[in-house]
């Protein structure tokens, strides 16, 4: 474990807690892409199946359980409890265009053609594009509430910090995983324009307005 990964995991945890809390407190999921949340729930459930087969550490197990539980709870709030506030009209990204390539790529490019490894690889590829429906929705509505942009900043930062973690581990432990690294770079790159807007606007108290 290293400082980059600890801060990355905490940033990730913060992001999903911010989102769950926002929906729960405002009793509304306006501006939130339910499709992205479904993809994230899928990412965690397919990646963390190894919860039942391998024990890495208490921290690892606890975090995996939290990520699965919070992502499913968020989907429940969006599609069940507060579904009257779900913005169908703006959450229109075709997620099958993300799922199909992730499945195909996982079957073609992986470390090991076993069930758990293919699922892990699918999860890594899917996570790199899972935020697209949310970013698409923000671009369609032309703006995002500041709490949503804090969520996106924390979520985008987590994988950026993981890239530093991978550099650290390659340098210090001589291990690396190209699939995770390439997907992580793609994932972080998707946030770049958002990061720019967040830093130049939201941090100056302005609303996040995307050029429509």
């Amino acid at each position: 474990m290293n400082i980059f990964r600890i801060i990355g995991d905490l940033s990730h945890l913060l992001a999903i807690i911010i989102l769950l809390r926002k929906i729960w407190k405002t009793r509304s999921c306006a501006g939130i892409s339910g499709k992205s949340q479904i993809l994230f729930a899928l990412v965690y459930t397919t990646r963390y199946l190894d919860l039942v087969t391998t024990y890495v550490s208490l921290y690892n197990t606890v975090m995996k359980i939290i990520f699965i539980a919070v992502s499913i709870a968020t989907c429940y709030l969006i599609y069940m409890k507060f579904k009257a506030t779900y913005d169908h009209n703006h959450d229109t990204f075709r997620i099958e265009f993300l799922l199909a390539p992730a499945v195909i790529l996982a079957l073609l490019i992986n470390h090991d053609f076993t069930f758990l490894e293919i699922l892990w690889t699918f999860s890594i590829y899917l996570e790199s594009v899972a935020i697209l429906p949310q970013l698409f929705m923000v671009s369609k509505t032309g703006e995002a509430e500041s709490i949503t942009s804090h969520y996106l900043f924390a979520l985008g930062s987590y994988r950026a910090l993981y890239i530093l973690n991978w550099i650290y581990r390659y340098h210090n432990e001589e291990i690396y995983d190209l699939i995770a690294i390439v997907a992580g770079i793609v994932q972080t790159a998707l946030y770049c324009d958002f990061f720019y807007l967040y830093i130049t606007k939201v941090l100056r108290g302005k609303k996040l307005q995307l050029p429509a």
Binding site: D50, I175, Y176
Partner: peptide, 10 residues
């Protein structure tokens, strides 16, 4: 080795 990494990462 490459793929021992993710077994201990989230």
């Amino acid at each position: 080795g490459t793929n021992t990494l993710h077994k201990d990462e989230l």
